[in-house]
Design a protein around this nucleic acid. Structure first.
Length: 489
RNA sequence: CGGGGCGUAGCGUAGCCUGGUAUCGCGCCUGCUUUGGGAGCAGGAGGUCACCGGUUCAAAUCCGGUCGCCCCGACCA
């Protein structure tokens, strides 16, 4: 990079752009351990806001937080056949403790179904003990071959919900409810619209009956799985003797669900909203919503401007209209940097709204407000700037989701499509293709080999095409289901 | 694990082919002048050239090995 002030552009190299934004916006950094990353305060601040929003949603739907151990007896993983097949190859295993070899190796959890359902089995006797609705915020480890900041690291942070129910239908309702909750969060808070639907057999969670997922489109037109919700059926209940006595006296196995989103969402945020100047954080998730940049020339002016800036800062921070969640405002009073340099820095960091305040503004009792998403400038009276800030932040949040939706739809393809055209798309611009599928896993595999595209989901009704596809995009046989095809992360 | 690239100051780099005092930019420190879109000038600090071994009077440079990182594939939140 000849000009190391400028980012590589998305068009030049999307992958390089992504890495640069994450590093230079100080969201994360590489660690001394291969494949592991350090989440820095700017990145963790976003995750904390995500956590808070999601946690409130979980609590509002009756879930409680708990915490289960990091270590899982190796034998637990083997109790559910598909589960061990799916996860065993990518586990980290502890063989020694306190200088001695362990009798039974401990697996560092790649996910916690086994240990959690073993405990549920201990706690449940009667149908009256159900449902159990548990969530935990935790770290998990999966020994991936290839890693990328936030998108795939050996260790990552997530939440995993685990529930147990009396009936299949109740578990199904729970899995679906959470999928909807995730979708609402991603659209409402992250300004990232998603397609929801069911995964095919080949893509479903190891050990699940059915997997539902939220799929988002990144700016390089690839799909990112942003969250999953599984109906586990009775598979784990049977493996861990999670039984209860029903109302009629019979012993039955419980029905489970599990569901999770991870710090991958921070990466999704970058790839959904970032531009060639850096990050753009939707206001609801921004650790700082508004940054005030004072401008002065002489010492005399500096005193005057800073005094006003501090007054504005105090009044906005304590603004009662924003109780109980105070406006997250920062005053950048660093003296060694020119205003322009500060603008670039805050734009890189993605702060949604900037206030410029100089002598000329103060003379007119006004300030300049600049949106990060559009870089549009507007003046506002200092007497009522709170209202303007509030209005703009809401507009930014709304416009960001609208822009993301618009981008996704522009790069989505519906209607009859030949396999040649499909291959051409996947080879070039990419995007989401809604096309028919005969239901044969062989076609799925062939398409993947030919194009690297996979069925992301069999979309839910609201996302399906008005005219259902008639034939399988690969083989031409009658379509049994509409599928969303795309290259994925 | 296969293919490619790369390890030189906090970051980014030149030098390596053809061995001989460590290059430049950003950042950092001090001072002065600056501050409405990435400040200027002057002075200054900062390096076991990834590691180990070999060749040589002499190695960042040549040879052998090791480790690590990034990118592209096969696997995945």
């Amino acid at each position: 990079m000849s000009d190391d002030k400028k980012l590589t552009t998305r068009a030049e190299d999307f992958s390089a752009w992504y890495n640069e934004v994450v590093l230079r916006a100080e969201l994360a950094d590489y660690s001394p351990v291969r494949g592991c990353m350090v989440i820095r305060p700017s990145g963790y601040g976003i995750w904390e806001r995500m956590q808070r929003a999601l946690d409130d949603m979980f609590k509002a739907t009756g879930h409680q937080n708990a915490y289960f151990p990091l270590f899982i007896p190796e034998s637990f993983l083997h109790k559910e056949a598909e589960h061990v097949q799916g996860f065993a190859p990518e586990t980290a295993v502890v063989t020694h403790g306190g200088g001695k070899e362990l009798d039974e190796p401990l697996v560092v959890r790649p996910t916690s179904e086994t240990i959690i359902y073993s405990m549920f089995a201990k706690w449940v006797q009667s149908y009256r003990d159900l449902p159990i609705l548990i969530n935990q915020w935790a770290n998990v480890v999966r020994w991936e071959m290839r890693t990328r900041l936030f998108l795939r690291t050996l260790e990552f942070l997530w939440q995993e919900g685990h529930t147990a129910h009396v009936t299949h239908d109740e578990a199904e309702e729970e899995a679906r409810k959470i999928l909807g909750l995730y979708s609402d969060f991603m659209e409402g808070w992250m300004a990232m619209p998603v397609i929801t639907g069911q995964k095919t057999e080949s893509e479903k969670f190891a050990g699940a009956l059915r997997t539902y997922a939220c799929e988002a489109m990144m700016q390089d037109n690839r799909a990112l799985q942003a969250g999953t919700s599984h109906n586990l059926g009775q598979n784990f209940a049977k493996a861990f003797n999670l039984t209860f006595q029903a109302e009629n006296g019979e012993i039955a196995h419980a029905w489970n669900t599990s569901w999770g989103v991870s710090t991958r969402l921070v990466g999704a945020l970058v790839m959904t909203h970032g531009d060639d100047n850096g990050l753009r954080i939707p206001p609801l998730l921004a650790p700082t919503e508004l940054v005030i940049v004072p401008i002065w020339k002489s010492d005399d002016e500096r005193g005057r401007v800073l005094e006003t800036a501090r007054r504005v800062y105090d009044s906005l921070r304590d603004w009662e209209r924003r109780e109980p969640n105070r406006l997250r405002v920062h005053l950048d009073d660093r003296e060694s940097m020119k205003p322009g340099a500060k603008y670039y820095e805050w734009e890189l960091r993605g702060v949604p709204l900037r206030m410029e305040l100089g002598p000329r503004d103060i003379d007119k009792n006004q300030c300049v407000l600049v949106r990060r998403d559009t870089r549009a400038k507007a003046t506002a009276s200092l007497d009522s700037v709170g209202e303007d800030v509030e209005t703009l932040l809401e507009a930014i949040q709304d416009d960001m989701v609208a822009a993301a939706l618009d981008r996704r739809e522009k790069n989505s393809h519906r209607g009859p499509i030949t396999y040649d055209r499909f291959r051409q798309l996947m080879d070039g611009e990419g995007g989401f293709v809604y096309a028919g599928w005969c239901g044969d896993p062989a076609c799925e595999t062939t398409v993947k080999e030919d194009t690297k595209a996979t069925i992301r989901v069999m979309p839910d009704e609201e996302f399906r095409s008005a005219e259902p596809p008639r034939t399988c995009v690969r083989c031409g046989r009658p379509s049994t289901t509409e599928a969303l095809w795309a290259k994925a992360y």
